[in-house]
Design a protein around this nucleic acid. Sequence first.
DNA 1: TCCCGTATG
Length: 762
Amino acid sequence: MERKNRTYTLLEDSESDGETARERGKEKKSKDRDKGKKRKHLRQKRDESPSSSEEDSKKRSLCYSFNLLDAADPQIWISSCDGPPSNNNIVSSYFLQESEPELSQAEKQKQSLQEVRRSLPIFPYRQDLLAAIRDHQILVIEGETGSGKTTQIPQYLLEDVQYKLSGTRMKIGCTQPRRVAAMSVAARVAQEMSVKLGNEVGYSIRFEDCTSERTILKYMTDGMLLREFLTEPDLASYSVIIIDEAHERTLHTDILFGLIKDIARFRPDLKVLVASATLDTERFSCFFDDAPVFRIPGRRFPVDIYYTKAPEADYLEACVVSVLQIHVTQPAGDVLVFLTGQEEIEACCELLQERCRRLGSKISELIVLPIYANLPSDMQAKIFNPTPPGARKVVVATNIAETSLTIDGIIYVIDPGFCKQKSYNARTGMESLIVTPCSRASANQRAGRAGRVAAGKCFRLYTAWAFKHEMEETSIPEIQRTNLGNVVLLLKSLGINDLIHFDFMDPPPHETLVLALEQLYALGALNHLGELTKLGRRMAELPVDPMLSKMILASEHYKCSEEILTVAAMLSVNNSIFYRPKDKVVHADNARMNFVVPGGDHIVLLNVYTQSGYSTQWCFENFIQFRSMKRARDVRDQLEGLMDRIEVELSSCSGESVPIRKAVTAGYFYHTARLSKGGYKTVKHQQTVFVHPNSSLFEEQPRWMIYHELVFTTKEFMRQVIEIESGWLLEVAPHYYKNKELEDSSSKKMPRKQGKAREELG
DNA sequence: TCCCGTATG
């Protein structure tokens, strides 16, 4: 195993920081805590022969980490315990991986665990790290994957004498971007500390709080800590907050940055650690008032990087050929191919299988396996099966394999350099998902996947020039690519009124904030001064988007809260409820048609939920994603549990459609479209939009519709629509709609099928 | 006429 030289660097600029922090501390003690204040395509050409490029000056050698313990890198994936094993969420567990069949003495096991701990790259830095944490309130930790930072730093703190002596024992909180990471890391640390998971060491994720009063170390998702701000705006029960995987720049992590930087000012006793992979640590340091950076190396095997000599036009074909070349010319080792989505992956797998069939016995066995988030779990699990001797495994993946899961045995990575990226246009309120060149950081992450178990090779299907000049250094942070309605409501409820001047590390587009504020005002969540109303406060209690929240609150008036809770839960997973594999499109579409009822897609979703048998078998037969159904049930249960708090009584309209659609309208009146020549026009922006072909109303043409979301793919599509009557708009939002707006001036000529759906409703 | 990259509360 090759290791990079261990270098210890502690960048220090702010000599007076400790001083001022202490002074602030004195100030704080004398005053009451003021909680109210808180608040190009890269044209590509494949190398003729990847292995023959020794002389190629473009060949690079990078080192990447070998990772046993990092949060983002689960090594073994097993089915979760609850429910049938085949179709559940896959859950990782270091715990099971570590437990050996021979039941030797617990003592012996404990010893070997401590040996493993001492062998981690971070171990030699233990004392310096503790000293740095003692001397600085905020510390940026640059730790490569596999350094052990996620599991070890909290333990070092807990073992440290200083920490033990520092008065009241308060919690250490450590955030992770993903649920599985929070769970598996907590399990690992509990094992290392010989405590029961949920006692001293626990985790907190949505739907699952595995902590107790004894918990002093809590791993959690970043979104969960954000929610905790609502009940504890100064995080008083924490003495240390660790923001892990900060480089991923998730929406929630970015908001946490601003909030934590703020509370750190009047809580000098709070220690903040921002842990990130290499890259960007200077930016974190800069944002946190020049906080020092502490560097820890990781463990890694070298990965040779190969580029193409010229751009390649057809990267799918290039992938297929590259895989086959590796298979024929390279020593044993599995291959990981990064593509952008389900369709590409299915096409690639088909091509590979077809060519292998044609080559027949001339080549050894090639096992081709797809993986993407929407693939049913039992099919996902196949990628973790060990490759039989003599065969080679090829995993064709989306960027799910970039951070969310790790496959053992990968030696070769093929990277065409693209990914699908969501963007949000605040002027139209439209989302789009577009294939774009990925960032250099992303490309390096992909390459690193080849160097986990041994030295590896990464074949980049673009030129070294393109890598250097056409790719961005890092990806655009999520906060700049997404609708912020939810975030704005949360910040408002934390008492942060001036969002335009909120301390964002990378501020979102101005229009995004303005649209979010505008919509919250229209919903009645904000008054004309931009302050939260009573309604707004109730809306903020629910972990859903503002319009959905308003819809739920409105359902009380229409006596259909039971149904609306279901609709809300189903909408929150709607993009993946119907399973539609390419080879069974007809069957899948027929199965879906069986659920169609009049009124629109929301009513269809309600119908699916009502009819759904809680079994994998039922889901399989009806082309429904079991995982999504399970999630919908979880969301619904959670929301139902919150109804008390927001004072909504549970009631049912026995599935009658009009009250349900009126409640939806009360939340989504901003999303109205009216029939016009050649499609629909949104009422507020006069934008031409179309009914999505998957909609139950695709062939109907009701005059007025409410859409759940607007997405641009090949056209401007409304996804999830219901039919409404224009009069309802005046009923639910008289402050927003004028009678004049709703007059039908343009519809002298009625389209063929107009009104059909309504007749059926009776 | 479709196409859902990945997460999260």
